[in-house]
Simulated assay, not measured.
Amino acid sequence: MQTNVLGKTFRSVSGVGLGTWQLGADWGNVSESDALAVLAASAEAGVTFFDTADVYGDGRSEQVIGKFLRDHTAGTTVTVATKMGRRMEQVPENYVLSNFRAWTDRSRKNLGVDTLDLVQLHCPPTAVVTSDEVYDALDTLVAEGAIANYGLSVETCDQALAAIARPNVATIQIILNAFRLKPLDAVLPAAKAAGVGIIARVPLASGLLAGKYTPATAFAANDHRNFNRDGSAFDVGETFSGVDYTVGLEAAGKFAELASTVEGTTAQAALAWVSQLDGVSSVIPGARSTEQARANAAAGSLPELGAAFNAGVSEIYDSLLRADIHPRW
């Protein structure tokens, strides 16, 4: 498994990590035993970075990770990144030290740790991203020992660039996949220059880049791929990366053809492409089964995809997606 330094945390983490939104059972049912099995399979396959949030299953994801860590203390070194800021309305006046303390105390209890490895503000409004007081409060949490490092999970490249300019921001989490290329323009170079780690989320465009969906594919009622296609619940860019589903299927078909020219499955090629980008610390696909967890982790060991593959990704994006996607995020 490829490993990288996670920005200003200076921790070594696996190039392919594990996103755990789905383990909170927010979109489709996942039992605790299945969730623990996914965590174990990932760790056994070399994954050393788990990403969660305090709102995933109202804390269930954090709690399951905490149980896993307690039961696997020997020989398992995992960095856990959590997120905060969506337990209340996302308005600037709620991003204050007292709330930060309450939210991080809850996450510390859920995870069973005294100090959180990394806490990220969870897609806050731009006014929060640019607030001096917010960073002062986060610095206070570090000084108090509640958190070791902090970063931001953002929706737009402009937000990412504003956060990267702050001296103590350790990481930026942003949507980055073969259907969302804008972060390559300025965000990755700026982060690398500042020593900020990039955590790439939604790397499979909500599954589109696995190449298995069709126009007839049905999603559960509580699955965001069903209820958030129009952005009615949260930023539409989080679902299928903001790509229209029909257009996405066409693009996914072309990506599958491209992936057939390299080693691994279509999904593994999509993950490897992100993890091999210069400046990406870890890519965090989700997994709902042990088989999927192992397959995702294996993408971190694939050979370099090469210039021809990269050109193919750009061609798909430019011909089908750029006009609708690039100006928005």
Rank of each mutant, 00 (worst) to 15 (best):
N4A: 10
N4M: 06
K8N: 08
R11G: 00
S12V: 13
G15H: 08
V16I: 15
G19S: 07
Q22C: 09
L23R: 09
G24R: 12
G28F: 12
F49Q: 07
A53E: 13
Y56Q: 02
V64R: 12
K67P: 00
K67D: 09
V80Y: 09
K83D: 09
R86H: 09
V91K: 14
E93Y: 05
S98L: 11
A102N: 08
D105R: 15
S107T: 01
L116S: 02
V119R: 02
Q120S: 03
L121E: 11
H122N: 11
P124C: 07
T126P: 00
A127K: 11
E133M: 08
V134Y: 06
Y135R: 02
A137S: 15
N149W: 05
T156S: 15
D158T: 13
A162S: 13
A165L: 06
N168Y: 06
L176V: 02
P183R: 06
G197C: 04
N228L: 05
F234V: 05
D235Q: 03
F240N: 05
F240E: 07
E250C: 00
E250K: 13
A251N: 01
E257Q: 13
A259R: 04
T261S: 10
G264P: 02
G264V: 04
A269G: 01
A270Y: 06
D278M: 03
I284T: 05
G300R: 01
P303V: 11
G306R: 01
V313C: 10
S314P: 00
E315L: 10
E315R: 12
L321K: 08
W329V: 11
W329I: 13
